[in-house]
Simulated assay, not measured.
Amino acid sequence: MSTANNLDHARLLVSGSTGNAVTDLVVPALLLRAPGASWSQLVHVYVPQGPTVAFSGRDLRSPGIAAATEVAHAAGFTTVVRSPGGRMVAYDSGAVVIDHLDRTTGIRHAGSATFAANAESHVRVLRGLGDVDARVGEVDGEYCPGEYSINVGGVAKVVGSAQRVTATGSLFSTVVQVVVSDRVRAVLEDVSDALGYDLRRSSIAGLADYAPTLTADEVAEAFASDYRTRLGMTNGELPPEVVAHASTADGTSPFHVDDWTRANPTTLSA
């Protein structure tokens, strides 16, 4: 069988956090750019271990970014400028993060069709979790607003996604809010205010606000199972050399993922 055919069938599902907020965000950015991948698609589903405020490049253009960073730090959150776009999102161990890397796509695949397809798949998973009236669409006053956000009952946002596309593939990243802690609610409000963004506090919710027995681990497994079934993925691991390299990432706050990965590229072992 040719290498191309092997790549067509190498679809890996990886579960579990690396244990560090910055490393979790650096790894997919490195994998997106690294040559020598032995897989065509890799999905990393994990429950983040630390409270994180993930800014985007767009947020950096706000005159309030310095104040927003200080607010996040005062609340005990790690601040990172993530690789995908969108706007600021905050989360902790009550959330689930899904990073979907696809080496078969490129610039031509960027746009609304990818967001729509992922939103439809994610809604199906959420509706299967219990009494969750999951819908695709932006609600008034939500954080990181987007046409393909997922809300419950047309009232509160519970899922948001963002994308990064390069010449070597695409990264589609999703944050699912399951149990939203008081500190996450507060930092979303305070950081949004510092950045000059409108935010309706009642638009912030987690799935457990509607299905109280749900846990982040259960939701993570539901999504992992969906990717295994829907995309024919097999269980795998993150390349240990990439995780080790990503764990050396350090710098000024907010830490800028793309700046670091461009300055510190890696390759994948065969």
Score class of each variant (00 low, 15 high):
Arg87Gln: 12
Pro63Trp: 07
Pro63Asp: 08
Gly85Met: 02
Phe77Cys: 13
Thr267Gly: 11
Leu214Glu: 14
Ser17Gln: 05
Gly50Arg: 10
Thr79Asp: 06
Val219Leu: 12
Asn151Met: 05
Ala270Arg: 12
Phe77Tyr: 15
Thr52Ser: 13
Pro145Asn: 08
Asp102Leu: 00
Thr18Cys: 14
Val178Glu: 11
Val125Cys: 12
Arg201Phe: 04
Pro254Asp: 06
Ala194Gln: 08
Val136His: 12
Thr168Phe: 03
Gly169Trp: 02
His245Gly: 06
Thr248Ile: 00
Tyr46Ile: 00
Asp133Leu: 02
Ser112Trp: 00
Arg230Thr: 13
Pro240Gln: 13
Ala95Leu: 01
Arg262Ile: 01
His109Tyr: 02
Leu214Thr: 07
Ala72Ile: 02
Val27Gln: 12
Ser15Thr: 04
Arg164Gly: 02
Val71Met: 09
Asp193Leu: 04
Val176Glu: 12
Gly57Asn: 11
Leu25Val: 02
Val179Phe: 05
Cys144Gln: 05
Val71Pro: 09
Gly236Leu: 02
Asn6Cys: 01
Asp209Ser: 09
Pro48Cys: 06
Asp133Gln: 13
Ser15Asn: 09
Gln49Gly: 15
Gln49Cys: 08
Gln41His: 07
Leu195His: 11
Pro84Lys: 06
Ala134Gly: 10
Leu238Glu: 12
Val158Lys: 12
Gly111Pro: 02
His73Gly: 15
Val152Trp: 12
Met233Ala: 13
Pro212Met: 03
Thr267Gln: 11
Thr266Leu: 03
Ile98Gly: 10
Ser2Glu: 07
Thr174Asn: 09
Gln177Val: 06
Arg124Val: 00
Val191Tyr: 09
Val14Gln: 07
Val136Met: 11
Gly111Ser: 03
Ala74Asp: 15
Ala29Thr: 10
Ala194Tyr: 09
Gly16Phe: 02
Ile65Glu: 07
Ser93Asn: 15
His44Phe: 03
Asp250Trp: 00
Leu126Gln: 06
Ala220Arg: 15
Leu171Asn: 09
